[in-house]
Write a protein that binds this DNA or RNA. Structure first.
Lengths: 209, 209
DNA sequence: TTCTAAAATTGAACAGTGTTAAATAATCGA
DNA sequence: TCGATTATTTAACACTGTTCAATTTTAGAA
């Protein structure tokens, strides 16, 4: 009986080994240099073996991204800022999110740009009601509700605002990743301006007050 | 003498033929299905010939994107809205831009996500002073200057605002392209809300008034 | 018009990719 | 220890981008 569990654990270890190797290759050489054969060489197995632990390359990629995703979520939620104003929390959350994602640019890009069902199951947030299903967007939504708690604003408008903040931040991150040679100071300037000013402007619904 | 010019024209025609074939394949089957051999088959030449007219696949891609780029620029500037308020112009510009890009999603993605020198020469706009060098961003900048003409706002802040609008819009477009299965009505809802409300909120510098 | 040099075009090959099927090696339960 | 099940590899297929030498086509001069 427990031999079955050991096998299960061994399978999980093998999957981990593969994912770690893939992750390393992506970090070291970039996403486009990742290949099945390169992963196999790194873990000293034959290329075919990967197809016993994963269906195809995309599934490997999906799992690599899932790991990154968890890191990012924890980076954002571990913000420990419960006794500050919701506005401040929003600003800090945005900044944390940007900084966390910029530490794993390739994984982030794979995840966010993949059109596969599996990837979209995690990354999509543009549909109506997303605010209730997506953890990351839900954090944002709660923040907005706090901000608007004294105003009367329709749920729909809040959701659309949350989604707008999300796409805007996504755009900023992607642009910073693609435009890889802007200097460090300019990068900081833009990140700060965006999260400290733009985000707050976006929140400023004109129907308020 | 004029035979040399004819040759030149023939070369240009051949390049056009290749680019058009590439563009068609991208539109029909998607960017990832584009291959040198497929282009060659489409124009009924051997694959090697492409290397006489272009250095490599990337150069072909860069030229395909350049075509798309021009279309988008003209779509935005042909907005014919000179006698409306700058705010309204801004909203309409944003909408036109989004609609134009969504008509050529693959070309747009290639262009905006390519990290090659050549591509970045056209697409980068995050650097300081971009507002004076990039035509598309310059349009935005002029609009903002009109809006702020009665306030005293530093040039730097205006540039950062323009850049923020640009990344935000980029994020929205990318997200809509990637999240390909949101319904048409939801897509419209988000585009409208973003360009009619969010954009105007972003413009609303708190140092104003 | 014929010959030669240059240009356009091709075929074949290289090194790489993802993926599959059959053959082999290792491991398990009886 | 034997038979069955699982893990792993080998070999192959159908692709990819790219290069280089051979070939065909074309242009200009004799």
């Amino acid at each position: 009986m427990n031999i079955k569990k050991r096998r299960e654990r061994e399978i999980e270890e093998m999957r981990e080994l593969i994912l770690k190797a893939a992750s390393n290759i992506i970090s070291d050489e970039g996403l486009d240099k990742l290949s099945i054969r390169k992963i196999a060489k790194k873990i000293k197995y034959s290329p075919s073996i990967l197809y016993h632990y994963f269906n195809d390359k995309e599934e490997i990629l999906n799992n690599v991204m899932k790991r990154g995703y968890k890191k990012i979520i924890s980076a954002v939620s571990s913000a420990e800022l419960k006794d500050t104003s919701p506005e401040e929390r929003l600003v800090q959350m945005t900044k944390n999110y940007i900084i966390a994602t910029l530490k794993m640019p390739d994984e982030f890009m794979v995840a966010q740009l993949s059109k596969s069902e599996e990837a979209l199951r995690h990354t999509s947030f543009l549909f109506k009601g997303a605010v209730r299903e997506k953890p990351a967007l839900s954090l944002l939504y709660q923040c907005l509700k706090d901000i608007y708690k004294n105003e009367e604003i329709e749920e729909d408008r809040i959701e659309l605002t949350a989604q707008s903040i999300a796409v805007s931040t996504l755009g900023l991150i992607i642009k910073i990743i693609v435009e890889k040679d802007i200097g460090e100071e300019q990068k900081q300037r833009i990140i700060d301006f965006f999260s400290e000013e733009i985000i707050l402007r976006i929140v400023n619904d004109s129907r308020t007050k």
